[in-house]
């Protein structure tokens, strides 16, 4: 973003270069996310979207070659994934792994406990309550083992549920809409809009416009070749999605800030 934000950004990525499996995937990424903003990050497969997301959450398999990640003004390059979560960063996984024997409710409880909340059980209940009807989740879902015997959509629902329980300052959703059907995506849209109103910031990685349709995103960024080649605010760029659909991501080969 070229314009300087009036308030301090929640997350600031500054000139970040990342290596994954010895490959330079992200080359000088710059991004600023303000409080309560929804940023859409798009780009074709292999453009580095997931790598960028993982690096914000502290995935040890992604190496920072240069640049800095600031969270609430603090450099978090060296912060552990656990501490990033505790300080308010949440990553919803594209392909969350199965954790056999651990139920969704037990995971959520532990997760909330780690935040240092005194009565995690009551607090978890309180945090989940408004969202269970929206997501059409009953008790039996909470007692399922994490990502075991779950459909693609259910896995994503479990991620969203963990997100609302964690109540983070910023959530990065890596293809939360893949594997989910339209009614489910609609539910996600409702949840995210509610959280946005509370002040949660979002980076939403997606290939599709389905989810975007149900959201009120603030900015859209297109990643290509490890760099943001296009950034724009959604209101003034109403035609952007159509252009992506028509011309593909490759038409955005240089950065144009509007």
């Amino acid at each position: 973003m070229s314009e300087t934000k009036a308030v301090k950004p929640v997350l600031k990525i500054s000139n970040l270069s990342l290596e994954r499996d010895k490959k330079n995937v992200i080359k000088g990424l710059n991004l600023e996310i303000g409080k309560g903003e929804i940023h859409i990050l798009m780009g074709k497969n292999g453009s580095g979207k997931s790598t960028a997301a993982l690096s914000v959450a502290g995935y040890p398999g992604v190496e920072i070659k240069s640049g800095k990640i600031f969270f609430n003004g603090k450099n978090i390059n060296e912060m552990s994934p656990v501490d990033r979560f505790k300080s308010g960063i949440f990553l919803a996984f594209q392909n969350p792994p199965m954790i056999e024997g651990l139920t969704v409710s037990a995971l959520i409880r532990r997760s909330v406990s780690s935040l240092g909340i005194l009565s995690p059980i009551a607090e978890t209940k309180k945090r989940l309550a408004p969202f269970l009807p929206i997501l059409k989740i009953d008790e039996s879902f909470l007692e399922k083992q994490v990502n075991k015997d779950m459909s693609g959509g259910e896995k994503k629902k479990s991620e969203i549920l963990q997100l609302v329980a964690a109540d983070p300052k910023i959530a990065i959703l890596d293809e939360i809409d893949s594997g989910a059907d339209i009614p489910t995506i609609k539910q996600f849209g409702k949840v995210l809009n509610l959280l946005k109103k509370r002040g949660t910031s979002f980076i939403i990685i997606t290939h599709y416009e389905k989810l975007i349709k149900y959201l009120a995103p603030d900015y859209i960024h297109i990643l290509n070749g490890g760099k943001i080649v296009f950034s724009g605010d959604v209101k003034s760029q109403a035609g952007i999605l159509k252009r992506i659909e028509k011309e593909g991501f490759d038409s955005f080969n240089e950065k144009r800030t509007q």
Binding site: P81, F93, I99, L115
Partner: peptide, 24 residues
Amino acid sequence: DEELFYLASRGIKQAEAMSLVVAG
């Protein structure tokens, strides 16, 4: 590593994460 990172990203430290998986 994937499972451990997943649990870490939910605030659960390595030893606890392993114990959880084993307990299950």
